[in-house]
Amino acid sequence: MSAMLLNKEKWPEFVGKLTGKNVWAPQSDGTEMRFAPVGENEKVVLDYNNTRVPPKGALFPQTETMFKFEIGSDKVEEPPLDQEVVVLGLRPCDARAMTIVDKLFKWDIDDPYFVKRQEKTTLVGLACNEPGLNCFCTSVGGGPAATEGLDVIMADLGENYFVEALTDKGKALLDETRDLLEDADDDAQKQKEKLSGEAEDKIKRSVETEGVPEGLPGLWDDPLWPRVSASCLGCGTCTYLCPTCHCFDIQDETEGIDARRCRMWDSCMFSEYTLHTSGHNPRPTRKERTRNRINHKYSYYVDKFDVIACVGCGRCTNLCPVNIDIIEILRQVKEAL
């Protein structure tokens, strides 16, 4: 589909045109960038590296109310999932992550919540010109200007954004804003490609994945696991901030006779995650949990869905309080193979 340009001065107007929909975009709360619904006074910021919390919540919210009910009555109410959502300015790694969790949520049966949200959501990505310190997307099948999972890709060319629709949904969105866009010439196309090439060169860290998916199960009792997990705090930072982590728990919550069934993110790094009612825990220590996290991403998921469940966004490494570094773990895995 044809490439277009959006002058940066017209950006607020572009966002304004989408107000009938629920627009999610990166915003600054003064200290941090995060994806949040755009209100009237909030300013969308596109000049950012990446948000700490990924935008996976657009399709898989941290807390999803599945239905509401009243204790002692047959009344059940399902919240409608008919709101159109536009996610603006997400990074290619985060969009690609959504295609990875897509396989799980549409595996044996379609997950209605994910599927309905996905149908109503348009993803407008922003290519990275300045990758972060721990970015390694190019090692795991992505790239700073990758388009997988996106409906529209944008790239910052300085004065203008390069804008290109990639799907029908994306085309429809650009049709609505057509009067703000102008056709991109070949120079713009070339500039975009040059910037994405430069961005790739700026990625400093990398992992070697060859032989890892097949080899990991054989390292079950390897001394690398106690070594890399000794300092783990057992918190949920790495998993909650991971754009491909998709585990959830389901709970009924009540307030008086009003009740709701919710599902919420869960983390395999928590001790209660695998805790049995009997008190037995098949993953009793942080060693087993860390091993599971790496195996799940780099072996089990590959086995089942033929793709590594890691997009190289670097969040787990950036934000681990005790410097547990997934790149270093994979280096040690390779060494042990």
């Binding site: 930072t237 901030l241 928590f270």
Partner: peptide, 8 residues
């Protein structure tokens, strides 16, 4: 986000 890193 209730990751409980503060607690842990």
């Amino acid at each position: 986000v209730r990751c409980y890193s503060c607690r842990n």
